[in-house]
Simulated scan of single mutants.
Amino acid sequence: MSSAVPTARPAAPPPVRTGRPAVRRTAALLVLVVVLVLAFAASLAFGSRGLGPGALWHALTANDGSDPDVIVRSLRFPRTVVAVLIGVCLGVAGTLMQGHTRNALAEPGIFGVSSGAAFAVVLGLQLGWVESVSSTVWVALVGALVATFGVQRLASRGNGASPVGLALTGAAVAAMLGALTSAIVLLDANTLDGYRFWAVGSVAGRGLDVAGQVLPFAAVGLILALINARDLDLLALGDDVAAGLGLSIRRARLVGLVSIGLLTAAGVAACGPIGFLGLLAGHVARRIFGARNTWLIPGAAVIGGTALVLADLVGRLVGGAGEVQAGVVLGIVGAPLFVIVVRRRAVAL
Rank of each mutant, 00 (worst) to 15 (best):
R24K: 10
P163T: 05
A174H: 00
W198N: 00
T306N: 09
A300V: 00
A167F: 05
T181W: 00
G304A: 04
A39H: 07
G109S: 04
G160C: 02
A229G: 08
L257E: 03
A183G: 14
E323H: 07
V137P: 05
V130K: 04
T136A: 10
I340T: 11
V72D: 02
G91F: 09
S74T: 10
Y195H: 00
A321Y: 03
P53G: 11
L232S: 13
L317W: 06
G261T: 06
V302T: 09
F119L: 15
V255H: 04
I303D: 10
N228S: 13
C89Y: 12
V284I: 12
G322D: 13
S202M: 05
A167Q: 02
P163D: 04
T18G: 15
I71A: 01
I86V: 15
L222A: 14
V241G: 13
L96H: 08
I274C: 00
A242G: 09
D193L: 07
A270G: 15
T294Q: 12
W198V: 00
D188S: 11
A140I: 01
S182C: 02
I260P: 10
V309K: 07
V151Y: 11
L280F: 03
W138A: 07
T148Q: 00
G238A: 08
A265V: 09
A285D: 02
I110V: 13
F197D: 01
G331N: 08
G272L: 08
V92R: 04
L192W: 08
I184E: 14
A335M: 10
N190I: 07
L32F: 13
G320K: 05
A41C: 13
T169Y: 13
L337H: 09
A172Y: 09
L85G: 03
D209F: 01
V84A: 12
T181R: 08
G160F: 00
A8D: 09
N293G: 02
L36M: 14
A219E: 05
F119T: 11
Y195P: 03
S74V: 01
G165I: 01
R344Y: 09
L186Q: 12
L36I: 06
D69A: 11
D231C: 09
G261R: 00
P163W: 03
A243N: 13
L60A: 09
G267Y: 15
I223T: 15
I71Y: 02
V333T: 06
A175N: 10
T18E: 14
R253T: 12
V37G: 09
A335K: 08
P14A: 15
A45G: 12
S248W: 07
L224W: 14
G165P: 02
R230F: 12
R196H: 04
T80Q: 08
A199R: 10
S3A: 13
G278H: 07
Y195E: 01
G178T: 04
L44Q: 04
L56F: 01
P15Y: 08
G116M: 00
T26D: 13
G282R: 02
P336V: 04
P6W: 08
V113H: 00
A11Y: 04
M176V: 13
R73A: 03
R286V: 04
G150C: 11
R20T: 13
G238P: 14
A93P: 11
R20C: 02
T294W: 04
W295C: 01
R206Y: 06
V37C: 07
L75E: 10
A62C: 02
A62Y: 03
G116W: 06
P53N: 11
F276G: 05
G244P: 15
F119I: 02
I340N: 06
G246E: 07
